[in-house]
Amino acid sequence: MAEPMSSGIRIEGLRKVYGQGDTAVEALKGVEMVVAPGEVVGLVGPSGSGKSTLLKCLGAVIEPSGGRMILGDEVIYDEGWRIGDLRALRRDKIGFVFQAPYLIPFLNVTDNVALPPMLAGVANREARRRALELFAALDIGHRAQAMPSQLSGGEQQRVSIARALVNRPPVILADEPTAPLDSERALSVIRILNQMAQQYQTAVIVVTHDEKIIPTFKRIYHIRDGRTHEEAGEGRLLA
């Protein structure tokens, strides 16, 4: 079905400073992180710890102040962006899953998912085929023609996972993807992310404070005061 991806993400000494001079705030102070292809890791920390800043740096929407980021075999940041077209980088190499699904309300489910490959120049028919293939894997094939407003919260989140995966990115960044869901649906989403990560060999970073899903990770990065430290998780979901 899907071809394996020899990717993953490695972050070395990533720093981010907001402002300058006396008003400068160092939000990230040398973050280290490695996520292998097919692996799902948790990124947890209290408010203001630097989670969102790290996510924005990883998502190439803000520029880090220093350090190094390697996506698959490609250095994308090394004391400066090494990629000219960040828009294309986000489109082709990074998948996003948000706290709320943020589906485009005026596109049906299939077109919501087919849009990223279409933006990358993939033919409409092929883009829709890829979307339908993901729907089958995510068990929402019967909702392919529905509008986002006709879906339940869990279904919408699965569609957003499909959208994140459709361009086969080496990494998916999931920002509180289970926050609006009840326990059962939250665990279902994590189960799907694990399944998709393995199936598509994608590295998945899940930012969360959701206590009910933290035990599902095999590895967890704790972030506090702009620094990360790694610890083993329970991996309960997969056991």
């Binding site: 998502g59 929407v61 828009r87 294309a88 986000r90 489109r91 082709d92 996003f96 948000f98 943020y102 485009i104 309300p105 849009l115 990223p116 933006l119 990358a120 959208r163």
Partner: peptide, 16 residues
Amino acid sequence: IREIAVLKLIGTRNRT
């Protein structure tokens, strides 16, 4: 605005 931010994040060109 939120949809536009998402569109930009997933790689939609400003021109589009």
